[in-house]
Amino acid sequence: MTGEITDFHIALNEGVWTRYKYTINSITFRSNENTGSPLYKEKKEFIGKKFPVICSKKEHEASYILILKRDFEEFGLVRPDSLNWICDSLNICD
């Protein structure tokens, strides 16, 4: 499934959080994930973009948005070529 980035939030002493939404069975869920500063620096490029989301089958609120290479590797996945623009255009390589 995919999720859409809606905003970014800076939390004192916690870093940058990415806000996103995704839909399961016609129900829209909203979530936050601490993604760090690389995305925030280029936030205009990311808001409205869609990325893969992984969530729990039992608790749909428990989710992770997969953007950077390290996000995919954390789940034993390979980032698809369709997301190479992150590195190529924005100089955010990991």
Rank of each mutant, 00 (worst) to 15 (best):
F29R: 08
R30C: 13
R30H: 14
R30S: 15
R30T: 15
R30N: 15
S31K: 12
S31L: 03
S31T: 11
N32S: 12
E33M: 13
E33S: 12
E33N: 11
E33C: 07
E33W: 09
N34F: 02
T35L: 06
S37W: 08
S37I: 14
P38K: 11
P38M: 12
L39N: 08
L39F: 13
Y40G: 03
Y40C: 04
E42L: 04
E42H: 15
K43L: 08
K43S: 11
K43F: 11
K44R: 12
K44F: 04
E45W: 06
I47L: 05
I47Y: 06
G48M: 07
G48W: 04
K50S: 12
V53G: 03
I54L: 14
I54G: 04
I54D: 00
I54V: 13
C55S: 11
K57P: 03
K57F: 00
K57D: 07
K57C: 00
K57H: 02
K58W: 02
E59W: 04
H60D: 01
E61I: 09
S63E: 09
S63T: 05
Y64Q: 09
Y64H: 15
I65P: 02
I65K: 03
L66E: 02
I67F: 06
K69P: 01
K69W: 01
K69G: 00
R70L: 09
R70Q: 12
F72D: 08
F72N: 10
F72S: 09
F72T: 08
E73M: 08
E74I: 00
F75V: 07
L77K: 07
L77Q: 04
V78A: 09
V78Q: 09
R79N: 01
R79F: 01
D81R: 02
D81C: 00
S82Y: 09
S82D: 14
S82I: 12
L83P: 02
L83S: 03
N84C: 04
N84H: 11
W85R: 02
W85F: 15
I86D: 01
I86C: 05
C87P: 05
D88H: 02
D88Q: 08
S89C: 06
S89Y: 08
L90F: 12
